[in-house]
Each structure stands twice: as C-alpha cells, then as structure tokens.
C-alpha cells in the first residue's frame, strides 16, 4: 500500500513537498520508513496530521489516507 505525504516548511527542503511511501500500515512505520530515506527528518521536529486531523498516537493508515507533516514556525 502506498501512502501520499505532504510536507511543509523545512521538511519540504529535506524531502520535497510531496512524497509517496510504500508498504506502511500505520504512522509509526511511516516515520521509520521516512527516517531511513531522509535521515535529517529524524532530528527535525514536526507534527503529523492524518486526513487533516493532528494525531499524537500511532494511527492506522489506508490507501486513501492523506498524511501531512508540519514543523513549528517561530518567525514573526
């Protein structure tokens, strides 16, 4: 199963503003897979949203899931 992910801010500089990840069943395995592909993501802070809802616990994904990764911004 392939899941589409959109990335914001500095995360997009690291991995591009949109990536697809294959064979991931939940958000934990998605993060593992992304960290292997983009080691810099492992040391970058972000929040995960699935279908526009922020998730904080491991969340099951399906092929229609829309995942977004957003970093905090401090600028003003």
């Amino acid at each position: 199963m392939s899941v589409k992910i959109i990335l914001f801010g500095r995360l997009a500089d690291i991995a591009g503003d949109s990536v697809s990840v294959d064979n991931v069943a939940d958000t934990d395995s998605l993060v593992d897979s992304l960290n292997k592909r983009y080691p810099q993501l492992a040391t970058t802070k972000y929040v995960i949203a699935v279908d526009k809802q922020v998730v904080t616990k491991n969340t099951v994904l399906n092929k229609k899931s829309m995942v977004a990764l957003l970093p905090p911004f401090s600028g003003g």
Binding site: G9, F73, S74, G75, G76
Partner: peptide, 10 residues
C-alpha cells in the same frame, strides 16, 4: 497566534 518561516505562515 500567527507564525512565519520563509514562504509559509500559520
């Protein structure tokens, strides 16, 4: 709350 970085805002 509002915050910005480069070309993006929240």
């Amino acid at each position: 709350y509002g915050a910005i970085s480069q070309f993006e805002g929240q």
